[in-house]
Nucleic acid binder design. Structure first.
Lengths: 203, 203
DNA sequence: GTCTATAGTGCGATAGAC
DNA sequence: GTCTATCGCACTATAGAC
C-alpha cells in the first residue's frame, strides 16, 4: 500500500473509530457509492475493488448496512469537527467564516464522496432517523440561519432554508458535470464567493 | 384510476411520447427512484407498486434501462420546454427571469422526483454520454452565465460555475430534510430570493 | 485476516397461455 | 395487457479450514 492510500485510511479511520482494515473497506465503498449509488453497490463489488473475497469483507463488517453506516458517520464526523472549530471562535462573524470555509474545503477535498453521500436517498433515510445528524444540522442552522440575510425575514423557517440551500449548493455543485474539469483552487474560490452572496458571510 | 393520477400520467406521457400505460410505469418508477435510488429500485418493486407482475411491466419496456431512460428524458424534456419559453423572450433580462422562475417552479412541483433524478449517479452517467443533455446545459449556461454577477470575472468557466451552483442549489434544496415541511408557496418564494442573490436576476 | 464452499433469496429477462 | 412459470445469475450472509 502506498503512502497516499495510508493517508486516506488514517483520515477515514480517525473519523469514525475504525481499524485500518475497516477504513480500507469504507474507503473503497465510498468510491463505489459515488459511481453507482448506495443501492447499486454490492458487497461483491467492494470486495473486488479491494482484491479480496466477500467473506473477508464480512469479517470487518457484519452486514452491508454497517458499511453504509460507517461511511455516513465518517462524513458526519468531519462535519462535526468543522462545527467544533467554528463554535470555538469568539465572535459570531468569525464562527460563520470558519464554518463556511470549512464546509467548502470539506466538499472540495472530498468531491467524489461527501456530496454523493449526502444526496443519496438511502443515506438520507438513514440520517432522518439519526439524532446525531439532526443535532449537527441544528448547530449549522443556528450559526448560518440567524440574520443570515438570505431571506431578510424573521420566520423560524428562514434559517433552515438558508442552511438547506447552502449545503445543497456546495455539496451538489462540486459534483456537477458542468464543473468537473475545474481545479480545486478555482472551485474553492468560486464556492466562497457563492457563500458570500448567499449568506452575507465572508467565506 | 382517479383524476389526479390521470393528470400525472398525461403530464408524464406528453413529456416523452409515451403511452398511458408506459407513463404509469415511469410514474411509479420515479417515486421509487426518489425513495431508494435508481440502483436500489428493482423491476419487481415497480410492478408491485402498480399492482401487476414483472411480465406486465416488461410488455411496456424491454429492459430496466429503458425505464430509467424514459424517466430521465421526461425530466429533461420539462427543462427543455422551460428553455424554449425563456429563449422566446425579447430581452435577455426577461429570458433569465422566465428561465429562473421556470426552473424553480419545476423543482417545487416535482420535489420528490426531479431533484433526485438529477442527482442520482446512475442518471448522471446516463446524461454524460447524451448530447441532448449537454445541449440543454449549454443553453442554460449561456443564458445564466454571461454577466450573471456570480463571479464578477471574465473567464469562460464562470458561467458554468454559476449554472452548476444554481442548479445544484435548487434541485438539492427542495429535497433537503431541513425544509421537508415547508409548503410550496414559501419554498418558491425562498428559492426565487436565493436565485436573485446568486445570479443578480429577478427570479 | 483471508480463503473455499454453500445456503437461501431476489434479480433481470423470456416463453407461452388467456 | 396481464398472467403463470421458469431460466440463469448475482446477491447477502454463514460455516469452517488455513
Amino acid at each position: 500500500m502506498g503512502p497516499a492510500r495510508q493517508a486516506i485510511d488514517a483520515s477515514t479511520a480517525a473519523a469514525a473509530d475504525l481499524s485500518a482494515a475497516q477504513a480500507r473497506v469504507v474507503d473503497a465503498a465510498l468510491d463505489l457509492f459515488a459511481k453507482h449509488g448506495v443501492g447499486g453497490t454490492s458487497l461483491q463489488m467492494i470486495a473486488r475493488a479491494l482484491g479480496v473475497t466477500k467473506a473477508a469483507v464480512y469479517h470487518q463488517f457484519r452486514t452491508k448496512d454497517e458499511i453504509v453506516l460507517a461511511a455516513a458517520e465518517g462524513e458526519l464526523t468531519r462535519l462535526q469537527e468543522v462545527l467544533d472549530r467554528a463554535e470555538a471562535e469568539t465572535t459570531r462573524a468569525q464562527a460563520r467564516h470558519v464554518l463556511v470555509s470549512g464546509i467548502v474545503d470539506l466538499a472540495v477535498d472530498r468531491r467524489r464522496t461527501s456530496s454523493v453521500i449526502l444526496n443519496d436517498p438511502v443515506i438520507r433515510q438513514f440520517f432522518a432517523d439519526h439524532d446525531r445528524f439532526r443535532r449537527v444540522m441544528g448547530r449549522m442552522t443556528s450559526l448560518l440561519g440567524g440574520g443570515s440575510g438570505l431571506t431578510g425575514g424573521t420566520r423560524a423557517s428562514d434559517g433552515r432554508v438558508a442552511t438547506a440551500v447552502f449545503v445543497a449548493a456546495v455539496s451538489g455543485a462540486v459534483m456537477h458535470p458542468l464543473v468537473a474539469g475545474l481545479d480545486d483552487d478555482t472551485m474553492r474560490a468560486q464556492l466562497r464567493l457563492m457563500a458570500h452572496k448567499l449568506l452575507d458571510v465572508e467565506g
